[in-house]
Amino acid sequence: MFLSLLLVLLIGAVAWAGSAAGFAPLFGVALPYLAAAVFIVGTVWRMVYWAKSPVPFRIPTTGGQEQSLDFIRQAKIDCPDTQMGVFARMFLEVFLFRSLFRNTQADVRTSLTANNGPGTVYYSSKWLWCFALLFHYCFLLVFLRHFRFFVEPAPLWVTWLETLDGVMQIGAPRFFMTGGILLVALLFLLARRVFNGRLRCISLVNDYFPLWLLLGIVCTGICLRYFDKTEIAMVKVFIMGVTHFSPVSAEGIAPLFFVHVTLVSALLLYFPFSKLTHMAGVFFSPTRNTANDSRRARHINPWNPPKQYFTYAEYEDAYRDAMAEVGLPLEKEPDKAAE
């Protein structure tokens, strides 16, 4: 945990020192290019790696009633038997984290034990669902807001987004809710790992590192907007230069900006080699993305081995006399088989 925090701090410090010492183009131009390339190539490579292995069997985890008789109501989304159903299931899974949402314990029944008085805490894993959802959506919105820097003039939808995001009208520059929520959600996800014994037990560096990295990105981002108020116009010119493959001088931009950019680059570099690939992986998951129709339509296994089994003929040879004794019909009667 601390190791990964140190690592993130180290990355930040190097970026700070480097850009202050005049290596800003390295951190602001070269690294992002490299990171973007690794991210794209790496993620595609990961997906190809998965796709190279076949899905030999149709193994959806059925979360409801199958399609069977007319008078029995099918759970069309949780136990889909059509592509539409699978699409709906995947949609809910990807956009609303359906499985995590399911992760609820039904109401607490304290009545079971008379002595188990009132005041029991309701523990529900919906918290995880809630914060995970908040985190992912805010991250997406924050990312989209950044399009203001990538496109000139800023697209209309970005402006709308910003208006909506700053709807609380606090502070100047206007406070964007998504940034704040993102920070809170990340802290929640981190706190779970630190304070819940069960999660501490299963957490690895691989889990803490991306969390610290994201926290670093969010914190530097927030600083750049509200505290270390960067010269937005200059940053935009710089970024436009990078995105249009004609980098301009980075002079005059605060080192903190380069820390932010470097951390984002680190995230992109790390992404394809880590659990973060779950973003792409969820679409591949055979327990979710297959229809429960394997009795209606045959699914082909490309490496299906040849059939090898104890055949009826061998079976009858082994037990012919005994079978004849109880009058079981035979392919070959004992006297003929002997010939």
Binding site: P54, V55, L204, K275, H278, V282, P286
Partner: peptide, 23 residues
């Protein structure tokens, strides 16, 4: 088995250890 089962490759790669499965 990794070559034969996409599920295995995927399940080895994408677990985020969120702990939802534990209890």
């Amino acid at each position: 088995r990794l070559e034969k089962h996409r599920s295995l490759k995927l399940f080895m790669d994408i677990c985020v250890r969120c702990g939802a499965c534990a209890d």
